[in-house]
Amino acid sequence: MSGLMLLGAGGQLGREVAALAGERGLALTALDHAGLDIADAAAIERVIGAMKPDVVINAAAYTAVDRAESEPELANAINAKAPGDIAAACARHGAALIHISTDYVFDGTRTGAYVESDSIAPLGVYGASKAAGESAVRAALPAHLILRTSWVYGAYGANFLKTMLRLARERDRLTVVADQHGCPTATRDIAEAILVAAQAFRAGTAVPGTYHFAGTGATSWHGFASEIVAQAARHTGRRPEVAAITTADYPTPARRPANSELSSELFAERFGYRAAPWQQRTAEVVDRLLAEN
C-alpha cells in the first residue's frame, strides 16, 4: 500500500488535513489515538510497516502548554520520544515524514520575525519537549520536513478563536493580553501547506529540513481577540469591550514568548504556497462557526 498516513487525526489540525485530503480525493489513512497510540513504539513500527505509506504526517502532539509544567513525562513521551520513533520507522520503511512543531521553541526575545536558522531557547516544558522532538526527527530520518507554526485556530477542536466566541456571548467585557505578538494561523492553511509538501515528497522535488509556516501578518492576542469579536458582531449584533492587559496581569504556569512571529518566506520560496492574511481566515472561520449555530 502507498499513499499518505495521518497521525493525530482526531485533533483540530488532523481533522482539517483529513477533510482537505478528502476534498482533493487523495488516498489518506487517518489514524487517531484509538487507531495508533504514538507512545507505543512497537505499534508505530507495526502500523507503518504494514501500510508502507509514501509520506507520514505527524499532527499528534501534547499541546496543554500549562499542564505540561506538571506533566513533563507525558509531554516528553508524546512530543519528544514519539516523533523519533515515528521517524525511525519511516526510515526503515522508506517513508518521508512531515512533523508539526511550534513557535514555542523560541524564547521570544528576537526583534522581528524568527527565521529557521535562529537559535532556539524554549521557556517551558512544552517548548522544550517539542524542540527535543525536532532533534529526534532530524537524527533518525533525512527525508523529513519539520513545520513550525503558531497560534493555531480553526473550525475543529478547542482553540483561542472558539474560546473568544464563547466569551463574547457570555460577557460584556473581555480582558486579553496585549504584549505577546505572533501570527494567528488557520488550520486550513496549515493543512494546505502539509499537502503541498507531501506532494513534493512524492514527486521527488521536496527540499527536506525545517520550515516556518504561519498566517500572513502579525498581531497581539488582544488584536486577534478584537478581530474575532468584530467579525462575530456581524452575526450576533453583540460587541463586548475587549480590554488590553499585560502578561503580568494574567500569570500562567508556563511562560510564553513575547514575540512568536515567524517568517514563512523560505517555505513560500521552496514550495510556492503562502498562508492567507490572518484577518481573512479569521472572518471565514467565524462565518463558518456562526452560520452553523
Score class of each variant (00 low, 15 high):
residue 67 R to F: 12
residue 154 G to C: 06
residue 118 D to L: 10
residue 195 L to V: 09
residue 102 T to S: 15
residue 63 T to S: 14
residue 26 L to E: 13
residue 189 D to T: 04
residue 56 V to K: 03
residue 179 D to G: 01
residue 71 E to D: 13
residue 277 P to C: 10
residue 234 R to A: 11
residue 158 A to W: 07
residue 24 R to T: 03
residue 214 A to C: 14
residue 112 G to Q: 09
residue 194 I to F: 04
residue 205 T to N: 07
residue 117 S to V: 09
residue 86 I to V: 15
residue 231 Q to V: 08
residue 189 D to M: 01
residue 3 G to C: 04
residue 213 F to Y: 07
residue 81 K to D: 11
residue 146 I to K: 00
residue 89 A to N: 13
residue 259 N to L: 06
residue 138 R to A: 11
residue 23 E to L: 14
residue 133 G to V: 12
residue 254 A to G: 11
residue 142 P to V: 06
residue 175 T to M: 12
residue 1 M to N: 08
residue 143 A to C: 00
residue 169 R to Y: 00
residue 214 A to I: 11
residue 118 D to E: 12
residue 248 A to P: 04
residue 130 K to I: 11
residue 26 L to Y: 08
residue 160 F to M: 09
residue 115 V to Q: 12
residue 288 R to G: 02
residue 12 Q to H: 12
residue 230 A to L: 13
residue 256 R to Q: 14
residue 58 N to H: 09
residue 20 L to S: 07
residue 43 A to H: 08
residue 230 A to R: 15
residue 246 T to P: 05
residue 112 G to E: 10
residue 43 A to S: 13
residue 282 T to D: 00
residue 254 A to D: 06
residue 23 E to M: 08
residue 133 G to Y: 10
residue 172 D to Q: 15
residue 183 C to S: 13
residue 209 G to P: 02
residue 12 Q to N: 10
residue 145 L to N: 01
residue 61 A to T: 08
residue 133 G to R: 08
residue 25 G to V: 10
residue 15 R to S: 14
residue 12 Q to G: 03
residue 122 P to C: 07
residue 293 N to T: 14
residue 43 A to Q: 07
residue 246 T to G: 12
residue 278 W to R: 02
residue 13 L to T: 12
residue 285 V to K: 02
residue 239 R to S: 15
residue 272 G to T: 04
residue 43 A to T: 10
residue 252 T to S: 11
residue 131 A to Q: 14
residue 292 E to Q: 12
residue 287 D to W: 01
residue 163 T to L: 14
residue 68 A to W: 07
residue 266 L to V: 06
residue 203 A to F: 01
residue 267 F to R: 03
residue 253 P to S: 08
residue 218 A to D: 13
residue 81 K to V: 14
residue 96 A to T: 09
residue 128 A to G: 15
residue 286 V to W: 00
residue 106 F to C: 09
residue 250 Y to K: 09
residue 71 E to G: 05
residue 18 A to T: 09
residue 292 E to W: 05
residue 256 R to T: 10
residue 193 A to F: 10
residue 135 S to E: 15
residue 75 A to F: 11
residue 279 Q to K: 13
residue 212 H to F: 01
residue 29 T to K: 10
residue 207 V to A: 13
residue 195 L to Y: 08
residue 276 A to M: 05
residue 212 H to C: 09
residue 228 I to Y: 01
residue 258 A to Q: 11
residue 61 A to H: 10
residue 127 G to S: 06
residue 269 E to C: 01
residue 103 D to T: 02
residue 281 R to A: 11
residue 219 T to P: 05
residue 29 T to Q: 11
residue 34 A to Y: 04
residue 50 A to E: 15
residue 138 R to I: 14
